[in-house]
C-alpha cells in the first residue's frame, strides 16, 4: 500500500454525533467474503429511501450535488462507535473518502482506519463548528490536509492535529504491518518458550 502525505479535496458534512458502524455499513452487507464493493452501500439506511438502493434520499448530505466527489468527511463526537467491523473503513474508502475529521473517534474504528490508509483527524468542537460552518457557506471549499505537518488548512483557518507517531509513520509509509512484525520472529519464538504450560 502506498502512503498518505498531502491531500486536497472538498468535504461532505455529516453533522451528527455517535455515528455507529451499523449506520456506516449495515449488517446485510457483511455477508460478503471480499474487502471490495462496500462503497455502494455506505450509509445505506440514510442514503437510500428503499432497500434496493434505487432511490436516493435527497436530504442526505452525501447525496447533494455540491458534495459529490468529496474526499473529506466531517462528523461529530464518537464517530465509528459500536461493532468492530472493518467493513466500515472499507466502505468509506471504497466510496472515495481519504480523511474523516471528527470531534472524537471510537477506539476500534480508529485502529481500523490505520490499516486502510484512511486518515482520522480529531479536532475540538470549536474547530469542528468552524469547518461545518465554512462548508455550509461554501460547499466547494477546498480543504488541505497535511499529514507530515499535522495540519488541516482551509479558508476557515489552520488547525493543528495530534496523531501518534507510529500511526503517522504507518500512514505516511503505507507499511505492511504483518511484514514488519514477522521481522521480530525471534522475539516471538523466545516469548513462546517462556509461556507456562497452563496458558
Amino acid at each position: 500500500m502506498s502512503g498518505i502525505t498531502n491531500l486536497r479535496g472538498t468535504a461532505a458534512p455529516l453533522d451528527q454525533a455517535n455515528v455507529d458502524t451499523d449506520q456506516i455499513i449495515p449488517k446485510q452487507f457483511l455477508t460478503s467474503v471480499s474487502r471490495k464493493g462496500f462503497g455502494k452501500h455506505l450509509f445505506h439506511d440514510w442514503r437510500y429511501l428503499d432497500l434496493h438502493e434505487q432511490e436516493l434520499n435527497p436530504d442526505f448530505a452525501l447525496n447533494k450535488t455540491e458534495h459529490q466527489g468529496a474526499s473529506v468527511l466531517l462528523a461529530r463526537q464518537n464517530f465509528g462507535c459500536g461493532s468492530s467491523r472493518e467493513h466500515a473503513p472499507w466502505a468509506l474508502t471504497d466510496y472515495g473518502f481519504k480523511v474523516v475529521i471528527a470531534t472524537s473517534f471510537a477506539d476500534i474504528f480508529y485502529g481500523n482506519c490505520m490499516n486502510n490508509q484512511l486518515l482520522p483527524i480529531q479536532l475540538n468542537s470549536d474547530q469542528m463548528d468552524k469547518l461545518f460552518n465554512a462548508v455550509a457557506d461554501e460547499p466547494a471549499l477546498e480543504i488541505e490536509v497535511d499529514l507530515p505537518a499535522q495540519q488541516v488548512r482551509c479558508k476557515a483557518g489552520q488547525f493543528d492535529f495530534d496523531i501518534a507517531e507510529h500511526h503517522k509513520h504507518k500512514l505516511l509509509k503505507g507499511l505492511d504491518a504483518i511484514g514488519e512484525t514477522l521481522e521480530l520472529a525471534e522475539k516471538i519464538d523466545s516469548y513462546e518458550r517462556s509461556i507456562p504450560a497452563w496458558r
Binding site: 468492530s84 467491523r85 472493518e86 485502529g111 481500523n112 490499516n115 486502510n116 504491518a177 504483518i178 512484525t181
Partner: peptide, 11 residues
C-alpha cells in the same frame, strides 16, 4: 478489525 485478525493469524 479484520486486518488485525490477519496479523494475529500470521504472528
Amino acid at each position: 478489525g479484520t486486518s488485525e485478525v490477519e496479523h494475529v493469524f500470521a504472528t
